[in-house]
């Protein structure tokens, strides 16, 4: 990632969200959306921008499941592990995706395209099993439907 690009992006975000301490999280969320994760350089520049320590920024980021401090795949697939989806055979969805992508839960494909993760309740309990691919939410899944959806992300 080019530092100049990052700084320009950061300037833009500060213009939008402001530079007060309470804007750190929205800025991190937007950077995460842009870069897929919050690496050392990103955290460092956010800390510098807000005039706080890197550790403070990292401490905040590491609290939230949806903020990655390690590089993940371009598409993060989160499968709902809550009981309602579990009752609707979430296990089969996971099995199908694991075998299609050739990775296990928690891993990232070699080409850095897909990561498989769990998430807690997505609010699709009446239409489970459900999953998210980045910010998109899918419900009423079957194993083959789940695979088709995932493969449509190129």
């Amino acid at each position: 990632m080019l530092r100049e690009t990052l700084l320009r992006k950061l300037d833009h975000l500060i213009e939008f969200h402001g530079k007060a301490r309470e804007s750190v999280l929205p800025v991190l969320q937007d950077l995460q959306a842009t870069y897929g994760y919050l690496g050392e350089e990103t955290i460092n520049e956010v800390a510098r921008t807000f005039g706080i320590s890197q550790t403070e920024v990292f401490s905040v980021a590491s609290f939230y499941h949806f903020l990655n401090t390690k590089e993940k795949g371009k598409y993060v697939i989160r499968i709902c592990r809550t009981i309602s989806c579990e009752l609707r055979d979430k296990a089969n969805i996971l099995r199908a995706l694991e075998s299609e992508l050739g990775i296990r839960m928690g891993e990232t494909t070699h080409d850095k395209k897909y990561s498989l993760d769990y998430a807690n309740c997505m609010g699709m309990c009446d239409r489970g099993p459900s999953m998210m691919v980045n910010d998109d939410l899918y419900a009423d899944l079957t194993p083959s439907k789940a695979v088709d959806i995932v493969l449509s992300y190129r």
Binding site: T82, I83, S84, C121, G123, M124, C125, D126
Partner: peptide, 10 residues
């Protein structure tokens, strides 16, 4: 709304 099994607020 995060309680497992809740989706009414959405």
């Amino acid at each position: 709304e995060g309680e497992p099994g809740t989706f009414k607020d959405k």
